[in-house]
Design a binder for these strands. Structure first.
Length: 421
RNA sequence: GGAGACGUGGCCGAGUUGGCUGAAGGCGGCACCCUGCUAAGGUGUUAUGUGGAGCAAUCUGCAUCCAGGGUUCGAAUCCCUGCGUCUCCGCCA
């Protein structure tokens, strides 16, 4: 959520930056509501102050045995007036909050300006796209051949885009999860978190999924609970409505969770294989830090994610998302894309975003600044470290051999217990 | 799931015959003072949100005693609902 005071003081600047994201965005309507809201509040405050004084007066008069009938009637009428103003005020408060909650974060100055993913900028590359001197296969074909993912029965059990891993496939998936978690916790200093896989509406609002992206999520029928689309949601919200000490920062947290996404609006895209499914596994990296350190913490987190790809020896590149393509809550985002032979291109495997204080303001996550003694909003950062299903798909495709076997990367072998499939 | 108890500031804990209590007291924290060091002691300070004034330091109004409603001139205090915690019983991986 953007800071209403900041918007009030820099309306042109905010509009200009928002239009980099989408030319139709504007905060003008919010400012109109804000103006009216403040007028009502001032008026209501005055009347409440009056009622307070008068009521105290009544108390004293009663003590002295005076008759208070007329003044009581007067204050009762005042109460009616206050009540109607309060109703109006609540209405405007909610309206303003809703408008702010539906307004995306403003892009960082360093985010490349552009309208869509076509304007994203490749900034670095590691390794070379895998070359084959034989007819290579797509991971979905290899998976079926080796019976390590049973796509058809996954569909039977649930619906399309649900997968059933089995045998060495299931073991490989679990090995990748454990490898990532061990690296993040033992070598990179993150605290392991195992959060609930369902979260309530307040939590979903904190990170930005609600109110705008309700239709992207799975919702429980009889409860105010949603299946999480990413571990970012519960993990970032761990400290919602709390004030941390500056000494507690930065917080490094990592979590494995399954992720549930309805993928509404992506019909026809990536319909085969493990790339786009309704339930997938992911290990997430989340940081809370001070505003001063957030750019460098963002960079370090991205490097931590890149480190996983390097250790697996998977070719990848880093892309700076353009202002038209970054996520709703982010002000800056690097995508890591892994080489996927079947697509003959790089596919997103991690998205490392800096949210500034946007999520912290929504979730109300603050800290006490030591130097000034003031409470400030933390900055939140997160990134996939990495998407597990896509990692498995990349391993299967990039490390397939002419004889039809798949070589398991060295670093995973202690986890899989086998060196090829 | 059934029965009961409870929900106050960073923590503990007063306040429940409604009124001057944003809230006593203690602990902790912070600042300063004092004792040559340490232990101890003294003084002060110590919530959040939001509106207004001011360049600012700051001053000031309003709100907040789990949340939301209600009663009343006036509610931390009374009533209702929800959420949560604890105890006992039942059930269960």
């Amino acid at each position: 959520m953007l800071d209403i005071k900041m918007i009030r003081e820099n309306p042109e600047k905010v509009n200009e930056l928002l239009k980099r994201r989408n030319p139709e965005l504007s905060i003008d309507a919010i400012l109109e509501v804000d103006e009216e809201r403040r007028q009502i509040q001032t008026k209501a405050d005055e009347l409440r102050a009056k009622r307070k004084n008068e009521s105290q007066k009544i108390g004293l008069m009663k003590k002295n045995g005076e008759n208070t009938d007329s003044i009581q009637e007067e204050v009762r009428l005042l109460g009616d007036e206050i009540k109607s103003l309060e109703e109006k005020q609540v209405e405007l408060d909610e309206k303003q909050r809703d408008m702010l909650l539906r307004t995306p974060n403003i892009p960082d100055e360093t985010t490349p300006i552009g309208a869509s993913d076509a304007d994203n900028v490749e900034v670095s590359k590691w390794g070379e796209p895998t070359k084959f001197n034989f007819e290579f296969k797509a991971h979905w074909d290899l998976c079926e051949e080796k019976n390590i993912v049973d796509f058809e029965r996954g569909v039977k059990l649930s619906q399309s885009r649900f997968t059933l891993y089995r045998g060495k496939g299931a073991r490989l998936e679990r090995a990748v999860i454990n490898f990532f978690l061990n690296e993040h916790t033992e070598k990179q200093g993150y605290e392991e978190i195992l959060p609930p896989f369902m979260a309530n509406a307040a939590t979903m609002t904190g990170t930005g999924q609600l109110p705008k992206f309700k239709d992207d999520m799975y919702k429980c029928v009889d409860e105010d609970l949603y299946l999480i689309p990413t571990a970012e949601v519960p993990v970032t919200n761990i400290y919602s409505n709390e004030i941390l000490s500056e000494d507690d920062l930065p917080k490094y947290m990592t979590a494995y969770t399954p992720c549930f996404r309805r993928e509404a609006g992506s019909a026809g895209k990536d319909t085969r294989g493990l790339i786009r499914v309704h339930q997938f596994n992911k290990v997430e990296l989340v940081k809370l830090c001070t505003p001063e350190t957030s750019p460098e913490e963002h960079e370090k987190l991205t490097e931590d994610a890149e480190d996983m790809l390097k250790k697996l020896n998977l070719p990848f590149r880093r892309v700076a998302l353009s202002s038209g393509d970054i996520g709703f809550s982010a002000n800056k985002c690097w995508d890591l894309e892994v080489w996927m032979p079947s697509y003959n291109t790089y596919k997103e495997i991690s998205s490392c975003s800096n949210f500034g204080d946007y999520q912290a303001r929504r979730a109300n996550i603050r800290y006490k600044d030591k130097a000034t003694g003031k409470t400030r909003f933390v900055h939140t950062i997160n990134g996939s470290g990495l998407a597990v299903g896509r990692t498995v798909a990349a391993i299967i495709e990039n490390f397939q051999q002419e004889d039809g076997t798949i070589i398991i990367p060295e670093v995973l072998r202690p986890y899989t217990g086998f060196d090829k499939i």
